[in-house]
Design a protein around this nucleic acid. Structure first.
Lengths: 164, 164
DNA sequence: GGAAGATTGTTGTTGACGACAACAATTGCT
DNA sequence: AGCAATTGTTGTCGTCAACAACAATCTTCC
């Protein structure tokens, strides 16, 4: 509770009113550099924006893409199973599926073994649409490579493999 | 537009109703593996939750911490400068500062050189509080190390250095 | 077999957050 | 002096996570 870490070299003595014009990128981040969370947050914003832009023509957002992909690879899953696997709240998945079902990409089929749950399937057009989405997503992934480098991207995927 | 990539090996024939119990982690992610965005999103969620939990006693969220840190390292900045540097909307920063000012951590001082803008400063208690926050944030960062490994964390920071 | 407890999908609320638009006060440009 | 740009502010809208409550339906246990 002493003063040791209190002030970490203020870069600019500001008696009171801000003095001269500040060039916006000469502002120190101090402790923020070295915080993984900050870097990851900024990167994630960049990556999502590029994804949304790249898949803009087909109007598919990252979460929607992840839902479609999982259903496509595991037809018949329940909403609970999809939600748990993707780390989405099941309350949230309801709206996502409402939207995807209105667009005729997904079907909710009443399960006969458990009448509480729905078995999720892609429609025919859902499957062909997903194929197109995957091509666009691959293009997005190439943008990531261009941004951080091919090797760095692979390194990053390896580091974060446990979180998938 | 053909059928090439349409269905990528559904792991489980689901005639209609979902058959047996699904063990929740035997669900394939298919194309999602290999997408940097997905891994980064999951990691970011983990990291934020740990940050919020670790700084739970002092009730400081990541964005608040970043604002305090930048002001602490660059006293006298305008709201515009802080917002631009951190990639926050200036509209959003208004509420953040309202909250931090109510908690007596930050002062808005009317600039004399530009009467539109405010010079942002930490209060006395803001400085001592930030020192404590930094210690807790360092503890959080240690959790990250425990999770992905010391070298991996450094590698990751190096890869994403451009985004800070 | 039947009561008690858990699960599934659904609806609704709250709060953090980003994206915009509009506005008054002030500054800068010319 | 006049007009465009900037700064802080207020407000709206949409996304998203976290909860809580509920009806219908399993599951468990006696």
């Amino acid at each position: 509770m002493t003063t040791t870490a209190a002030r970490t070299s203020p870069r600019k003595r500001a008696g009171n009113g801000a003095a001269r014009r500040i060039d916006a990128d000469e502002i120190g981040l101090d402790a923020l550099v070295g915080h993984a969370g900050y870097a990851v947050r900024r990167f994630q914003i960049w990556i999502f924006q590029d994804f949304i832009k790249t898949l803009g023509d087909v109007d598919i957002r990252p979460t929607q893409y992840s839902v479609l992909t999982v259903i496509g690879a595991n037809p018949g899953l329940s909403q609970m199973a999809v939600a748990k696997r993707l780390g989405i709240e099941r309350a949230r998945l309801v709206h996502l599926l409402d939207s995807l079902e209105q667009r005729r990409l997904v079907k909710r089929i009443k399960s006969k073994t458990d009448r509480r749950s729905h078995a999720l399937h892609l429609t025919r057009q859902g499957e062909t649409a997903l194929a197109r989405f995957k091509r666009l997503a691959a293009e997005h992934e190439r943008h990531v490579e261009d941004k951080i480098g091919k090797e760095n991207r692979e390194r990053l995927l390896r580091i974060l493999a446990d979180f998938t």
